[in-house]
Design a protein around this nucleic acid. Structure first.
Lengths: 341, 341
DNA sequence: ATGCTCTGCTAAATCAGTTTAGCGACGTGG
DNA sequence: CCACGTCGCTAAACTGATTTAGCAGAGCAT
């Protein structure tokens, strides 16, 4: 690849200076007493030869590789991962860094492999990402360097980047209140396991807290809460059907994520009910399907790209060491309206 | 990170041998005349010190980095990318390699940046991937090394990995024929641009060819073909509505991808028609929604993971230099049945 | 005893940078 | 005239591996 790359020695020779001089000029070292003319000559030579430093040689000496490891449990394969990676990629590029991606798949052997690969390559930092917002254990081996948790927290006091799920819950509830919904707001997607075990999910509890806090402040209580074993369409479908069997039909339904909402749409469609005229639906995530549904689903978007970006910023520019919450913007579409009656 | 890593010199010292000896033993060099005892001592020392070679130092000398660059136009951010990356990641791990990910976003400046980052790091090979199966131009700068195109072809004679869209088209058509559909098979998703310009899509034309060839062989012609400006749900919805306005209602509809099929489902739902009793639907891609739809959508799956894997295999193990077509397996769900009348 | 080959191993060069230590020329103040 | 500091620059060490060239000693034939 690139058969005859010019080396620093080539540049120095052409500039009629030593490697030392060339190195210092190209690295923009302060306090060196090289003449303006020497600077000129080095820059010119580098330019003419199309010189680019060899990263391996440099990092051998400096122990810096301009490389960030992006380690995820399984995130790189999910469609949720795209934005995370893209944001990280963008921010990394802006800081002249590059991303090394590995995946542990939640497997100890793979994790060990990933860690070794990372250590062997002396990356400048590690972004440890989780697919679902949750708490996880960071392998001690990488604690020697700088680590930022993405979409995750850990028992260790590491900087982390999280979506502001609680704020999103509040905003979702407020949106319904603002439209005039009050005593007939239902919820789909309660799940004890997710709410209780932070190793499984942090989002469930946070979203719920935001919703409850906001409704309570307005003196409103949830009409009913549907439990779901998972947050998948089929469970949203089932929960919605149960909901419709009750004597009081809700005026609005909050779904804990878009996949549940998709299932709810299916159930409503079968029941011959129209969204948002008969019933408003609002949700979380901004999965691609949210925009594809008819009518479009209003939902609090997981700011994946922002989060990926933030993680790199915290890693490279230094964060305050605490948690960094990224706001979840509400995507207003047509699934929420003022109740008819 | 890993503050005091043992170096080769440490291992050599502990084994009471020279660095040369240690290096040769650890690299399993043939033809060296080092005693069995020397081998033992080196292995033991390396083990005891937890020795791992420094990749930067090694690649400075050998010009090998055990790193593959995964360059994509925009693929890393799409949910289609997940599988591609995952497959590549797995195959790379099996061969003790690691993946460096960059994205060009179709932007010339970003592309230049990506190429430079890659060249600077002396990666062992490049996987150049596209989000949509298409033809693209590979930047000449990387043609010096080994390159494999993933989900793409190029004017240069480079090895490439592609999904077998034509085979998938044939299988889809065969599936309908096998269920007894004949003269009332409709198609949604014709698109002149996609079919004609290989820089936009290779899939459209290939799928169509497969469908036509198979139907023709059975002496069947398509009932009607719906054109769509894009392959998005709204267009599938519109096309399906048009289809239902025609005098003869089709017994089955082939959609060029799952998003169109999703739109078609929506139109059918509104029209009060039941899948598959009133009408069968079959499609391509195996987007996650295909499994979430009610009934589940039968579709020819894009074998992303296999493709990513194959790309690494071709790159590292050497391919035959030609195109490598990965079969698209049919996911049989409930959207296809024998026509009622 | 000499020359030769084979065995088992090592010194030193090399990769391409960064960094430390310091050199010679010049100016200046005492 | 000498000591000292500053300027402008460089030689050489160093990073941690691989690789080339070759050395000392043993065994064997002549």
């Amino acid at each position: 690849m690139g058969r005859e790359r010019a080396t620093l020695a080539d540049v120095a020779r052409r500039a009629g200076l030593s490697k030392t001089a060339a190195s210092m000029v190209l690295n923009g070292r302060e306090g060196t007493r090289l003449s303006a003319e020497a600077h000129q000559r080095v820059f010119a030579a580098a330019e003419e030869l199309g010189y680019r430093p060899n990263v391996a040689a440099r990092s051998l000496r400096t122990r810096k590789t301009a490389t960030i490891a992006f380690v995820s449990d399984i995130v790189a394969t999910t469609r949720f991962a795209g934005g995370l990676i893209r944001g990280a990629l963008d921010a990394a590029r802006e800081r002249d860094h590059v991303l090394l991606i590995t995946e542990t798949q939640g497997d100890a052997t793979f994790e060990r492999y990933a860690i070794e690969a990372i250590l062997d390559r002396q990356v400048d930092g590690v972004i440890y990402a989780a697919m679902a917002t949750r708490r996880l254990a960071v392998p001690p081996a990488i604690l020697g360097g700088s680590v930022v948790l993405l979409n995750a927290t850990s028992p260790e006091p590491l900087p982390c980047v999280l979506p502001d799920d609680e704020g999103a819950g509040a905003m979702v509830a407020e949106t319904l209140l603002a439209q005039g919904h009050r005593d007939r707001i239902a919820l789909i997607g309660r799940n004890r396991q997710k709410e209780r075990d932070p190793e499984i999910s942090l989002a469930a509890d946070a979203r719920l807290r935001g919703i409850r806090r906001t409704l309570a402040a307005a003196g409103v209580a949830l009409l009913t809460e549907g439990f779901c074993p998972e947050w998948l369409p089929e469970h949203g479908y089932a929960a919605m059907r149960t909901l419709l069997d009750r004597p009081t039909r809700p005026s609005a339904v909050i779904c804990m994520n878009d996949r549940l909402a998709f299932g709810a749409y299916q159930a409503l469609g079968e029941a011959g009910l129209t969204i948002p005229d008969d019933l408003s639906v609002i949700s979380f995530d901004d999965d691609p399907i949210a925009a594809w549904l008819r009518p479009g689903l209003s939902t609090a978007a997981l700011p994946h790209e922002q989060m990926g970006r933030r993680a790199v910023e915290v890693l490279l520019d230094g964060g305050d060491g605490g948690a960094s919450f990224v706001p979840m913007p509400l995507r207003r579409r047509r699934s929420v309206a003022t109740p008819a009656d």
